[in-house]
Nucleic acid binder design. Structure first.
Lengths: 246, 246
DNA sequence: GAATGGAAACTGGTCAACCAATTTTATAAA
DNA sequence: TTTATAAAATTGGTTGACCAGTTTCCATTC
């Protein structure tokens, strides 16, 4: 009884078009191809394209005007919680550093024994995946999500999920993905995760936050080497989360 | 040149049907009338009804199954990228404390003179709004967003925007809203904002992070008094962000 | 040459008919 | 009676044709 999601056709088309908006340099106000043009291009009926346009309109990408055409929506009135812009991996990692290190520090205060058992299991999953040379990073994702879940704050969980979704939609990340998962960095990251878990187990907020920060810093530096892109703004900014319980 | 929103037909129908779901006692799993039934009942074409169903499906109300029919959706498996869950104000404030205090600390390192000018203008807007007794909190929102923008990281801006959107969708927040904006707490929050800005101006990461944390802590405690709801999990957890530039 | 009017060529909006998957029903076999 | 099977009815899925606003452009007029 798994959720066999037979994705509806209009959704596939909507995602295709959303990706096109994000990746082909459309700016707010730009005219988007007409329903007829796209239906011809994709070899499907116009109704189907129309349904996809409705999705894009609801999500705030498009502004549909009868008799005139469809236009890429103003950035301002984009439905804020659904925007799927294509963020660069460094912006994403920076955001994850700030958010997830705070979360790790907080989670150290709220984590339960059961949470720790689950995290240990996830770490084992990761170890086996690396051993078997699997490219799957589901366990990696799960580890980070479980830490957020340990805070028992669903908003924080949603925020972390959102960052992973953005990562998966990032075209630049997709380009780096293969090279990263071909290499042996994953073993290093497994060590990082183990260190984070150890800090959480000891309920050491400071250390947990610092370990998470350092982990994402390691990922960032690896990415930096692979992409040969400088990041002067962020280099040399060292973070030392410190917490004091009263 | 106001935005004369000629509401699209499918939207009207979707709202009509959403109201029907809400008011006619439909429960999760209940079968909803078929597209044909509704098109006959309303005297419109089935395509139009179908488009409205798509809206309801996206918004998480309906579960459409080919060959079978449409059913009122389970509350749980809401489409993830469109989830409009109703978060409680304390979860939201907790998330904002963790995220925004980190952001404030980071922004202190990246902020420009121009950013500070803009923040000062926003503070002035706030002051005038309070003076005139306006209930509008747009300036409040803008202040927090501008700090996120000062990091020059669009992911962080999106995260903060997302939290405000969730707040606006929060029904419990809506219930508290009037009571909060009737009272004189806003002057206190203006002082908090001024203190944050001062720390940013001096590029003091530690102080900026702490000031932001304290500000949201003040809001949280005010909310706590107004709603008479205990929050034992989070009470007594004191945060002291500390950063050290190398 | 500039302003005006209107036809023609777009655009999205709506519709009814047909297609395909699912569910239900009827029937026959065990 | 129970079960298996297939046909029929019902559902959403898809299509092409036509309707109704907008824009474009050209002939007309001043």
């Amino acid at each position: 009884m798994t959720s066999d999601v037979a994705k509806r056709r209009y959704q596939e088309i909507a995602e295709l078009l959303a990706r096109r908006i994000a990746e082909e340099g459309y700016k707010p106000g730009d005219k988007f191809p007409t329903e007829r043009q796209i239906s011809l291009e994709l070899g499907i009926s116009r109704s189907l394209v129309r349904e996809a346009f409705i999705v894009l309109e609801i999500e705030g990408y498009l502004d549909v005007r009868k008799g005139s055409g469809s236009y890429v929506a103003d950035g301002e009135k984009i439905s804020l919680n659904v925007q799927k812009a294509d963020y660069g991996p460094f912006e994403l990692l920076q955001a994850r550093q700030l958010l997830e290190s705070s979360i790790a520090g907080f989670a150290a205060q709220t984590i339960t024994k059961s949470d720790i058992v689950h995290l240990r299991e996830t770490l084992e999953l990761e170890r086996r995946a690396i051993e078997n040379g699997e490219e799957d990073y589901a366990a990696d994702r799960l580890f980070h999500l479980q830490i957020a879940e340990a805070t028992q704050n669903s908003v924080l969980v949603a925020q972390v999920e959102d960052l992973w979704t953005k990562r998966e939609n990032s075209s630049m990340w997709a380009r780096l993905h293969d090279r990263i998962f071909d290499l042996s960095y994953r073993a290093k990251w497994l060590d990082d995760h183990a260190e984070i878990l150890e800090a959480l187990r000891h309920r050491n907020s400071d250390k947990a936050g610092q370990a998470m920060w350092q982990h994402l810093e390691n990922v960032r530096r690896t990415l930096l080497e692979l992409s040969d892109v400088g990041d002067p703004e962020f280099d040399g900014y060292l973070y030392t989360p410190a917490r004091a319980a009263p």
